[in-house]
Amino acid sequence: CHSECLGNCSQPDDPTKCVACRNFYLDGRCVETCPPPYYHFQDWRCVNFSFCQDLHHKCKNSRRQGCHQYVIHNNKCIPECPSGYTMNSSNLLCTPCLGPCPKVCHLLEGEKTIDSVTSAQELRGCTVINGSLIINIRGGNNLAAELEANLGLIEEISGYLKIRRSYALVSLSFFRKLRLIRGETLEIGNYSFYALDNQNLRQLWDWSKHNLTITQGKLFFHYNPKLCLSEIHKMEEVSGTKGRQERNDIALKTNGDQASCENELLKFSYIRTSFDKILLRWEPYWPPDFRDLLGFMLFYKEAPYQNVTEFDGQDACGSNSWTVVDIDPPLRSNDPKSQNHPGWLMRGLKPWTQYAIFVKTLVTFSDERRTYGAKSDIIYVQTDATNPSVPLDPISVSNSSSQIILKWKPPSDPNGNITHYLVFWERQAEDSELFELDYCLKGLKLPSRTWSPPFESEDSQKHNQSEYEDSAGECCSCPKTDSQILKELEESSFRKTFEDYLHNVVFVPRKT
């Protein structure tokens, strides 16, 4: 048989008469490798580009789960590009990614509803959504962080984005990388972005840091009482949809009607710091009717980097990364020049730590249904340095008659930039024990000054392991946590139920 035959053949030295091919099969003959313009397919066939392209389009058009959109890589027609490569849609070739590779997620039936953290986790790592997304989240724990972890990498949506009755959302900033909504599939009414009845939605994105392009379709905003109209108009300008909307697409009466839409800028007039305090004062603000001013709200939190936005980490279910302080308005003076500047002394802060701070007014709604208010920009203030805590785990070892090696770990709280350490030492008198000992005694162990690591005695271990207080009263049991108490109650309830079950099964009433 021919060298490319495997198993047997019907005619000697003829690659077209093989029972099976050793390498690849091409047009009725066995070959060692697939010549151009053919590609290896499933490690035994040679196919042309049209064959591989037909497989790709067949799966793409069917949208069946589990099928493969075949691509070409290293002269092979394979189910998908290997790690580190992405497909070129024009020629199906796998090309190296520039940075992290995109991950295209194809949605069944063309859309997916995100109504819980669990459903959001199914899209973790996706960068391109081939379909439409509907966000409908009523509640949950730590929602802002969970949504950002699972949806934060999405850069492109081919269909539309719909935010509907998501009472738990305060902001859409968890879509931190969303840059493009194509609108290839539109919501009824030709809408590519749809926001309806979101009672706590206050911000779409921080438009000073976020760009969003909507290729096709219109915007729809109705019944978002805490979303200011200025935020919607800003989205029109940034996304390129200005002029597409009709009169009733953006409701003037049901958007922002319960919001404090600040239209003035508060400026800080005085800032002073110490290692654990920050004193702030800002310019006074009074609405047209000074009785509408209820006070100020001061927001602050630790910020290692200057990239904080107002609604980071917030949701309507209680999660809030900001510390909020309510401040009463100052006494009002008739003389504008003698107006008191409101302020606040922030206490209990960490030394040498940068804080993000902003302040906003708290006002009631005027009778004319106009909203007044003022808010400052987010500023960054760093507390002063102070003395560091003591170095940890000092170790001293003498390696000769004239040297001592000293080692330690950095302090747990540096409280500033540590530039150097101060080492103090003092000579001590020799131990009298060394002169009084009889060095001729056998088995004498000389006193040693070398360091030995501390260890816990058996008594201390027994005390720590004991669940009861000892007789001397030195140790006591740790208080039980809520989960331990709940577990004990469940076990007790189970024992009672099981005992009742045994009584009912074992003891049967005697027939009379």
Rank of each mutant, 00 (worst) to 15 (best):
Y300N: 02
E156M: 13
I404Y: 02
K301S: 07
S402D: 14
N248Y: 03
Y223C: 15
L186R: 07
S119P: 06
L345H: 03
Y191N: 07
Q258N: 04
W408M: 02
L172I: 15
L107C: 03
E111S: 02
F175T: 01
G140A: 09
N142P: 05
L252G: 05
N334P: 14
P394F: 07
F290M: 06
R179T: 12
P342A: 12
L265Y: 07
A356Y: 00
S192G: 13
N340W: 15
N320T: 14
P342S: 07
Q314K: 15
D197N: 15
D377M: 11
N150L: 11
R370G: 10
G110V: 02
F268K: 00
G139K: 04
W282N: 02
I157D: 00
P342F: 08
S166N: 12
I378K: 02
A259L: 13
W344I: 01
Q382K: 08
K407W: 15
S402R: 04
A120R: 01
P330T: 14
G131D: 00
P288D: 14
E283G: 03
I214P: 00
F221N: 01
I134V: 14
G318Q: 04
E236C: 03
E155G: 11
G348T: 13
I154C: 05
F193D: 01
P288Y: 03
P410K: 03
G125K: 09
Q258F: 04
W408I: 12
E310T: 02
T361D: 01
F299L: 05
N211A: 13
N255S: 08
V324H: 06
W282G: 00
C126V: 01
N190M: 11
S319Y: 06
I395Q: 10
L294I: 07
T273G: 15
L143H: 03
N150W: 12
E184A: 07
T185W: 05
T383A: 01
L349T: 04
F296T: 03
P336L: 05
G183C: 00
L143W: 15
H222R: 13
M297S: 07
A144N: 12
N255H: 03
H341D: 08
N334K: 14
L108A: 09
A316F: 06
P394W: 15
H222K: 01
A120W: 10
T383E: 00
Y194T: 12
Q403I: 02
L153E: 15
T185V: 08
S338T: 14
E283P: 08
K407T: 03
T353K: 14
W205T: 02
V128E: 01
M346G: 05
P284M: 13
S333M: 12
L201A: 02
A120S: 08
K301F: 03
D384A: 14
L169T: 05
L331V: 09
L201V: 11
G256W: 11
P336T: 04
D249V: 11
Q314R: 15
N150G: 06
G256M: 06
D115S: 12
P410F: 06
D115K: 13
G189I: 01
L201E: 11
I250K: 15
R369A: 04
R176N: 06
T113S: 13
S398T: 15
S132N: 13
R179I: 11
S239I: 15
Q199T: 10
P388E: 01
Q199R: 11
N307L: 13
A303T: 08
D326N: 11
F275S: 14
L266Y: 02
L212Y: 01
F174Q: 02
F358L: 02
I232G: 01
Q339N: 12
S400N: 13
N200D: 06
Y194N: 15
G131E: 01
R369N: 14
S166M: 02
G348W: 14
F290S: 06
P330F: 15
T371L: 11
L123P: 01
H233M: 02
E146Y: 15
L201N: 00
R244V: 04
R176Y: 05
G159P: 00
A145I: 14
T185P: 10
V363E: 01
R124F: 03
P288H: 03
I214G: 00
K112Q: 14
K209C: 14
S274E: 09
T383G: 00
D377F: 03
R202S: 08
S338N: 07
D367P: 06
F358K: 14
C317S: 03
F193G: 01
I157F: 02
R179W: 14
P284S: 04
E148W: 15
D393T: 06
G131S: 03
I181K: 00
N320L: 13
K350M: 04
D312A: 08
K409C: 14
R138V: 02
D328E: 15
D115P: 07
F268W: 06
Y223R: 12
V170G: 15
I357L: 15
H210M: 07
T118V: 02
N190Q: 15
R138D: 04
N224H: 10
L180K: 09
L279Y: 14
F296D: 03
D257K: 02
A259M: 09
Q258S: 12
L227A: 02
L123W: 08
N399D: 15
V170M: 09
L186V: 02
Q216S: 11
I188K: 11
R369L: 08
T371V: 13
E109Q: 12
E155T: 09
P287S: 10
S402M: 03
I327P: 01
F220D: 05
G256E: 05
P388N: 01
N224S: 06
R176C: 04
H210N: 09
N255W: 06
L201W: 02
A303L: 03
L172N: 01
G343P: 04
D367L: 07
W352F: 03
Q314A: 10
Q121L: 08
G217A: 03
A168T: 12
S158R: 04
Y194E: 12
N387H: 15
I114Y: 04
N211Q: 10
L143S: 15
W408T: 01
A144I: 15
L143Q: 13
T213Q: 14
T386L: 03
K267R: 13
D249E: 15
K103P: 08
Y270V: 08
D328K: 15
K162H: 12
N255A: 06
D384Q: 02
S239L: 12
I250L: 07
N141G: 12
R281L: 09
W282M: 05
S396L: 11
A385M: 14
I357H: 00
E283Q: 01
K234M: 04
Y194K: 09
I154A: 03
K177G: 04
E148C: 02
E122P: 06
H233V: 12
C317D: 02
K177E: 09
F174V: 08
H106M: 11
I157E: 00
K375L: 14
L280F: 07
L331T: 12
N130C: 02
G256I: 02
Q199G: 07
E109F: 02
S208A: 05
T353C: 03
G140I: 07
L227E: 00
